[in-house]
Design a protein around this nucleic acid. Sequence first.
DNA 1: TCCTTGCTTGGAACCGGTTACACTAGCATA
DNA 2: TATGCTAGTGTAACCGGTTCCAAGCAAGGA
Lengths: 333, 333
Amino acid sequence: MAVTLKQICEEAGVSKATVSRVLNNHPLVSKETREKVQEVIQRLKFTPNALARNLSLRRTDTIGVLFPWIFNGFFSTLLRGVDSAASELNYHVITSLSHDAGDENAMASRLLKERRIDGLILMAPSLPADQIEELKSIDVPLVVLQREIADPEVNSVSVDNFDGGLKATAHLIERGCRRILAIAGPQGSLDSDRREAGYREALKQADIAFDPDLLIRSNFNKETAFTSFENFRRRFAMPDAIFCFNDEIALGMLKYLKTIGVRVPEDVALIGFDGIEFTEFAELSTLTMPMQEMGRQAVRLLIKQIECKEKRTAEQLLLKGAVVERNSTRRRS
Amino acid sequence: MAVTLKQICEEAGVSKATVSRVLNNHPLVSKETREKVQEVIQRLKFTPNALARNLSLRRTDTIGVLFPWIFNGFFSTLLRGVDSAASELNYHVITSLSHDAGDENAMASRLLKERRIDGLILMAPSLPADQIEELKSIDVPLVVLQREIADPEVNSVSVDNFDGGLKATAHLIERGCRRILAIAGPQGSLDSDRREAGYREALKQADIAFDPDLLIRSNFNKETAFTSFENFRRRFAMPDAIFCFNDEIALGMLKYLKTIGVRVPEDVALIGFDGIEFTEFAELSTLTMPMQEMGRQAVRLLIKQIECKEKRTAEQLLLKGAVVERNSTRRRS
DNA sequence: TCCTTGCTTGGAACCGGTTACACTAGCATA
DNA sequence: TATGCTAGTGTAACCGGTTCCAAGCAAGGA
């Protein structure tokens, strides 16, 4: 059995209250008592039981991070940001991957209602609004990550999709491309819509008319992107450039274009969105999101909520990404 | 304030003990009582407080997973395996990344001694033996991941490095390569040594004499690998194939060879080790380790230890990897 | 000298569950 | 009818801390 506070107080000849005060650096303890107690603590190698402490204090110093099963490339970088910020602020991190889509709520509310965590960071790009509503109702600190949220009562940290769409497109335009094919996400995806708005804005700023034929859709994965793209090819000439709304699509396209003999960047420039690590190896230009920073900010926002109880208005952070230029958009010489 | 067990028992007109029995499906409760209590639980939306429960039961249903900061490609896949196995067995997962090397112990023992976790999965490829010794002394269930351990008292799950080295080399030999350069890890790395042994065994089986000049060393990263390789090039002719002892080196080499005009696989075949995801995009052949399965097995081993208290002899699982053939070792036609 | 004040300290309740043990009632057995 | 057993339930201690409140005690002021 581990050493407990009781053993310490018996050994030191003081009460539990006093030992507890020493542990928490309470000022109202005389110097001699404090030193005596500390000596015993050292000698018996006492570490207070966090469970008991948490039960008393009604807090766990732990935050939950809920990720979707799929979110591959981001995952580690984001979690890294979360973990580093959390550990700096002396919090622990419970991770949980939702296995089935729709699982999120059950897992989240279980963690929350069982009081295992003080707050939750939720990364669920496809979580429907009503589920968020439900989570909100549990009334525990919550930060939604990587999902621009309309609801002003929900704290969120997200990449500025509009700004990103604009920058990526502008980058292609600067390289001399004018017929820029956008492979967007599904209808109704807020992320996709905002990126599209940025894309259009960049065109407008360059006095290029928006051509609806040059915007095709996917489900943010390569398979659906391929189908759309082949459809496009049958009807139209190859564009100057392709702006894929995420890196998975872009990486898939890169490979695919090679197989059909289209050279990147000589025949067509290609840019992705997200900045997953693989893009570096693939020499793919992309708009990188500051994932680690997003993780850090999410933690900060969450802990701010946890530590000051009075209801504060929610914050919605929008972090800006940046274009990383690699071979796939190198200027044709 | 959340609903507590006390409120349930008052509302249902029974004692705490009875409510607790209902919650835990204890058989000694009459049907009527059980139903009445359950109805109240439903109606008041009661969820028992895990902290209180844990304190009483002296267990947390939580395992810790400690990763090094660097272990990129593996990270998500491994964690995925851990998470899925843990959640199937009704355990939670606390993750922690050690930020500074050497941090591991402090973090691990803090989690363990504070009784926040019931056991620990430690992934620390570079953890010195004496630190493991120290962790062992805390005497809490522990599984070491991805590190062949000499100590028979420590449970571990690891890839079979010998088998992997053998298979990767044999794969190259089958493709007709005979001068096979191995870019190994540092001296004294158990992983590297075992892979090397496999490499040598494969050569021996093919009646190829081992040539010490064809074994160069790195620190398992591209920078040191480059230095060694350039050194090698100045003195010797290009080999038939290169077996890189991890994928990071292999991916770096792939890029590097391209810049110096050496074609893969036409001029030289290239194979990596580990099976990180990027290898797929890079068309790099590699020996993939079953990362997800390793995570799952580690959890299983750990929970087996947690749940049967009598000291059992430690198990050391060695999972075998498999060669995934991609373009970088495609047979020259 | 007596009372007030402030610093230390201890007693005991509390956080929200689990469970060993005691107790009661009902029924079968002797 | 007395006895033993069992099923169902309640009492109270316990897990290991935190903290409110009261009390002891010495110093300072009236």
